[in-house]
């Protein structure tokens, strides 16, 4: 780890100001992602700006939906009655993640910005296009067991976001509130926040230098209330998803009025599947429909030697999640 200085910011202005002065500096919230990267020599910020005192707190109902401060911790949000009742999938995505200790430390903003678990990325001894653009991607012909099959490119097949929360956020049309150095706020839907790797896998999201995640707002909706997050992994707990599905359905009289589907563990980014939603919407809530939706969701999959199983696994995960929500 390199030498770094540390400062606490009391306001967003102070925090963004620090980063303007020193563009290599980094914000630190819970530190559960950043410190790991620093210890591995993958991030070397000369200055850490602690943002945990910023007023990005609170879980409250607004006219646009439920607004969650970016500095709330994962457990607090996952266990909050409003989240549990109105967005079961969001609650589950948080509580099925990491470990209780990590969830107590980890912030919502930090969660959204966690980095890939691709073993080649995490070890500077390997080449990796995401870490060192142009150095190559050994995962293409190497250990790609856990990596993505949707939205991947020849430059990178990592699930840039390996976690759970953003999958649920993507499904339910959540919108991030960002604030830049000028104190200007903008709203970015989670589905537009992450970038596909293309030829620039090092660029993972639309966050500008120094920009802060202030909050995330999830619109109220019937399909969000009737939702679930299903996470599949070989270990019963404390593991990233091999595949996961955040789904929500509004079913009336056996017909699906509206549907939301996002997949985790399989996409280069949290994978909202409008293809699946299209199949579901207006169709009867039956297994045949769910299977057709699953086929549609994985249509564009580009599997490799060790992650080909994810096509079927993601389909089955999606079908199972839909069945659970439909009560079938």
């Amino acid at each position: 780890m390199n030498d770094f200085s540390y400062t606490q910011a009391a306001t967003a202005k102070e925090a963004t100001g620090r980063l303007k002065d020193q563009p290599q500096a980094a914000y630190i919230a819970g530190g559960t992602t950043l410190l790991d990267l620093m210890k591995a020599g993958l991030a070397e910020p000369p200055l850490l700006v602690d943002i945990t005192r910023l007023p990005f707190k609170g879980i409250e109902q607004t006219k646009n939906g439920l607004r969650i401060g970016a500095l709330e911790n994962m457990n607090a949000v996952g266990e909050h009655p409003l989240v549990v009742q109105q967005y079961p999938a969001v609650s589950q995505s948080l509580l099925l993640a990491a470990s209780p200790q990590l969830r107590n430390m980890a912030s919502i903003g930090g969660n959204i910005l966690q980095r890939t678990r691709c073993g080649y990325f995490r070890d500077a001894a390997f080449p990796c296009n995401k870490r060192v653009p142009g150095s190559g991607c050994p995962a293409l012909t190497g250990d790609n067991h856990n990596l993505a099959i949707l939205g991947v490119s020849d430059a990178c097949i990592a699930n840039a976001y390996p976690g759970d929360l953003s999958v649920a956020l993507a499904a339910f049309d959540a919108v991030l509130t960002l604030e830049n150095a000028k104190g200007k706020e903008r709203q970015v839907p989670v589905t537009e926040f992450y970038l596909l790797p293309g030829t620039t896998p090092q660029k993972e999201n639309v966050l500008e230098a120094g920009e802060l995640i202030v909050a995330v707002t999830i619109p109220t909706a019937a399909h969000a209330q009737r939702s679930t997050y299903l996470k599949v992994r070989e270990r019963a707990s404390y593991a990233y998803a091999l595949a996961s599905a955040a789904v929500g359905l509004d079913v009336q009289g056996g017909t699906i009025r509206s549907a939301r589907v996002a997949l985790g563990g399989v996409g280069a980014q949290p994978w909202r599947s409008r293809e699946a939603e299209q199949v579901l919407t207006g169709a009867p809530a039956t297994e045949a429909t769910f299977k057709a939706a699953a086929t549609a969701a994985l249509q564009g999959a580009r599997p490799r030697e060790h992650n080909a199983y994810k096509v079927e696994l993601a389909q089955n995960t999606l079908v199972r999640a839909l069945q659970q929500v439909a009560g079938a």
Binding site: Y120, A125, P138, D143, R235, Y238
Partner: peptide, 19 residues
């Protein structure tokens, strides 16, 4: 790694033991 003969998961987040 089959080409580089270096471990890709040498840590306890990625090398799983039962919980």
């Amino acid at each position: 790694d089959p080409h580089l003969a270096r471990y890709t998961n040498p840590n306890l987040a990625d090398y799983h033991v039962p919980v």
